[in-house]
Write a protein that binds this DNA or RNA. Structure first.
Lengths: 234, 234
DNA sequence: AGTATACACGAACACCTGTTCGGTGTCAAG
DNA sequence: CTTGACACCGAACAGGTGTTCGTGTATACT
């Protein structure tokens, strides 16, 4: 047996509750609902809420302030954002967790060490220079990351072109096989794979047809670990 | 200037508020908080809430019942559920909108043309092979994109290494300056910048120290436009 | 005409809820 | 020993909030 349609007032009450919860993080009071939908008496609001409860569209906890909750059916019915707090927030977590932003904080050129910010605080940056990446794209922790744009042709031995973006993690200690940004005694910065070998450091170019260089450990300073290289070609 | 750590009571208050909101869809009252964390006086609860507000961990609306909201910093600090429903869901919507997934559908090697799927449908793919990117990273439309992993050293002239990922758009027509995947008459596939020049096609390597090749138009088939190159080095 | 139901309303009431007041105790610094 | 800051507390109060009562109008049904 089909029930009657909701009255205009009842529809407006549901819409107002949804909107109020989204904005304030708590349900409205009986009087707030009354003000919003032009019902001057708390008794009439109460009557309509009772009708909505009978329809299964909301739940009420008796004798407590703001004791309203819209039910799942309302969420489904209106095709809007879920109202059940747990579900909506869980969705938020999943979505927010899947993308993160890496600040593009400067350039890397062959001739000078990288400057990565005044005090190591990576959380303050201009929104216009940010690299957005899915979190699955970089392993491990996502903090202490920054991006640099390559300036000039001097990184070609690293298979990195002018204009490419390198995503770095701020680590000064390198392990064998890491690709690092290394500052050499002769004043150049290079991106190469790092190996400790027989008391020396072998810096291996990414281009397999090129020869590695060997330096004493004190001639090289690791400035960061390269996590990813991005090239935008269009 | 470092602030003091939160007291045990304050931590318990925050945890209780989070849990209560998740369960009931509304914030707790001062008295409910007091009961939960064993504070017998509403004044002490109020005092601690004031301290948490001073720390920027919650907001209070004065003179309304259940006028508490945890701030974003709490979510970050506790690594748990976001609390402001509206903000969290809006953020989720924004975040979801800003990331898209490009299917990793195969490999590209020098010796054979690219196979990019049976019927051109790029929306059905295995979740395990997907490249997540912020939408700001690629200009123009985001449909008809796919990713290929480079196999072998033969793309070095394109500054593309074995194991790199190229993100392609399924376009068979190229404009001057586009980087394309081109299949040549001799059976090789190459990634080069495409130019029409004096009735011939100039395919320009990305590596500026290398020479371009010139081919007749009928000797080359464009198989897609390269939008981005990704190299995961860690 | 009488009855039942739906919808509407103002007023009163009981209880909930947040804020303020005046106080105590502990600890560190001078 | 004194002072100040911090944390804590019970009590009182003001205002917020939900529920109930009594009443009125319109419509449908018998």
């Amino acid at each position: 047996m089909a029930k009657k349609l909701l009255s205009e007032r009842q529809k407006n009450i549901l819409a107002y509750i949804e909107e109020y919860v989204a904005e304030y993080g708590r349900p409205p009071t009986i009087r707030e609902i009354g003000s919003a939908v032009k019902i001057s008496s708390t008794s009439v609001v109460n009557y309509n809420l009772t009708k909505l409860k009978e329809r299964g569209l909301l739940e009420r906890d008796a004798e407590v302030s703001r004791g309203l909750r819209l039910t799942e059916r309302v969420a489904a019915a209106t095709d809007q954002v879920k109202h059940s707090l747990g579900k909506a927030v869980a969705k938020a977590n999943t979505a927010v967790g899947s993308v993160f932003r890496v600040p593009l904080i400067g350039n890397i050129v062959a001739g000078s060490p990288i400057e990565v910010g005044n005090d190591g605080d990576f959380s303050v940056y201009d929104d216009e220079d940010v690299i957005e990446i899915g979190s699955s794209m970089i392993s491990g922790r996502h903090d202490n990351l920054y991006a640099l744009r390559v300036s000039g042709d001097s990184m070609i031995d690293a298979m990195v072109n002018d204009g490419d973006i390198v995503i770095m993690r701020n680590e000064n200690e390198a392990r064998n096989g890491d690709m690092v940004a290394a500052w050499l005694r002769d004043g150049t910065t290079t991106l190469k794979y790092f190996y400790r070998e027989n008391g020396k450091i072998r810096l291996q170019p990414a281009n397999p047809t090129m020869q590695p260089i060997y330096v004493d450990p004190e001639e090289v300073q690791v400035q960061g670990k390269v996590m990813m290289v991005l090239r935008q070609t269009a």
